[in-house]
Design a protein around this nucleic acid. Structure first.
Lengths: 199, 199
DNA sequence: ACTCGATGAAACACTTGCGTTTCATCGAGT
DNA sequence: ACTCGATGAAACGCAAGTGTTTCATCGAGT
C-alpha cells in the first residue's frame, strides 16, 4: 500500500485538483451560454454538481471564479504546427480556428464587455487566450524567414494574429454565419499571403 | 399664432418624437456602460429623466426598447468621404473609426453576446450599424477602380470592411489600448494597401 | 378658465441572485 | 470502528430588477 500512496505525496489536494478542473470547465460552459453579467453561481453549481457553498469556499466571488476558469483554459496547449510552408501553417491554424469557432466566439462574446471594466478579467483573457495564440502565429513567420521563404520579417506580420483572431471572433456576429474553413482559406490566399509577401 | 401651429400639422406626436430620440439616446448610453444583460429599465428611466411607466407605455419590454434604440442610431449617416485617392479615403475612415472607437467598441461589446441568441437584436445591429458601413467602404474600392487606381476589384476587397470593423471593435479588448491614428496609418499602409494592390 | 389625456413618482407583488450560515452526511486516515 | 475535516442541501437576509398599478399633477387644445 505504500506504492499506492507514493503517487500522491500530498494528502487530498490531488482529488481536489481534478474536481476543480471540472468545476472550472462547467464555469466556462455556463459563461458561454449565459454571458458574464447574467452568469449565476447557482447555475454553475448545478452544472458542476456541487454546492454553492463549495464555490464560495474555493473562490471568493463570481469574478474570482470566472478569472480562474479562464486561466485554467490556458494550459490546454494546441499541438505545435509545422507543415513546412508558411501557407500550410496558416491554413492549418485557420482550420483549427474554424473548428472551435462556435464555442470560442460565444465565450469571447460573453466576456467582451466585462473585460472593458474588470482589469483582472482582462488580463486573464489576454494572457490565457490571446497571447499564446499570438506567439504561436508569430513563430510561423520566424520559421518562414529562417527557411528563406520570406526575405525578412514583413511589417504586415504585426497585424496578422489580431486580424485573424478578431475575424474569427466577430464574423458570426457581423453577418450571422459561422466561420468555415473555406472562408478562412480565401482570406489567407487573397489577403494574408499577398500582404506578407509585399511588405 | 396660426404661424406657430402651422409648423406642427400633427398635434402632439412631434414633441413625442423628440423626446423619444432622447430616451433612445439615453438607452444607448446605458447600454454601453452597463452591457445588455445588466441593463435595467430603472437606469434608463433615470438617465432619460422619465418614469419607468412611460418606458413600458412606449415599448413593451427591454428587448423592444434596445432594438428601437439601435435602429434609431442608424440614420445618423456619416458624411461622405472622397479624398481623391484610395489611401486617403481609407485613412480618413480609419481616423473616424478611431475617434469613435471607445464608444463604439463598448456598444458592440455590450451587444455581442446578446445578438447570438436574439434574432431581432441581431438584425437591428446588422442593418443599423454594420451594413451602412460596409457599403460605405465598398464605394471606395469602386471609385478607385473607376479612377484607374486599381485595375480591377481585388479579391481582398471582400474582406476589407470586416477586417477594419473587427479591428476597431476588438483591439481595445485585445491589448487594452485604444486605436490611435499612427497605428491606423500603419495598419492601412502595411496591411490593407498591400493586400488590395497585389490581388 | 376648463377639460382631459399623458406624464412622473412611488409603491406594488413577484422573481432572481448574492454571499452566508446551519446542519446532517460522507469518506479518508488512524 | 472512530474521528474529523470537507462536502451538499437548504434556508437565510438582503439587494436589485421586472412589469403593473395607483394617484396626483401638468400642459396642450377648446
Amino acid at each position: 500500500m505504500a506504492a499506492d500512496e507514493a503517487a500522491t505525496p500530498v494528502k487530498r489536494p490531488r482529488v481536489t485538483a481534478e474536481r476543480e478542473r471540472e468545476v472550472l470547465a462547467a464555469t466556462l460552459q455556463a459563461l458561454s451560454d449565459t454571458g458574464y453579467e447574467a452568469l449565476s453561481m447557482e447555475d454553475v453549481a448545478a452544472r458542476a454538481h456541487c454546492s454553492k457553498a463549495t464555490l464560495y469556499r474555493l473562490w471568493h466571488n463570481k469574478a474570482g471564479l470566472v478569472s480562474a476558469a479562464i486561466r485554467s483554459s490556458g494550459p490546454v496547449r494546441p499541438a505545435e504546427v509545422d507543415t513546412g510552408s508558411l501557407r500550410g501553417d496558416l491554413i492549418t491554424v485557420a482550420e483549427r480556428l474554424a473548428q472551435h469557432a462556435t464555442e470560442d466566439s460565444r465565450l469571447y462574446a460573453a466576456l467582451s464587455h466585462a473585460i472593458l471594466t474588470d482589469d483582472e478579467l482582462a488580463s486573464a483573457v489576454q494572457t490565457a487566450l490571446f497571447r499564446p495564440d499570438t506567439e504561436h502565429v508569430m513563430r510561423f513567420i520566424d520559421r518562414a524567414v529562417e527557411r528563406g521563404e520570406l526575405t525578412h520579417r514583413p511589417a504586415a506580420a504585426d497585424f496578422l494574429p489580431q486580424t485573424m483572431r478578431s475575424l474569427a471572433m466577430s464574423r458570426p456576429a457581423l453577418d450571422g454565419t459561422l466561420l468555415d474553413s473555406d472562408y478562412l482559406a480565401r482570406f489567407i490566399d487573397d489577403w494574408v499571403m499577398p500582404a506578407l509577401l509585399h511588405t
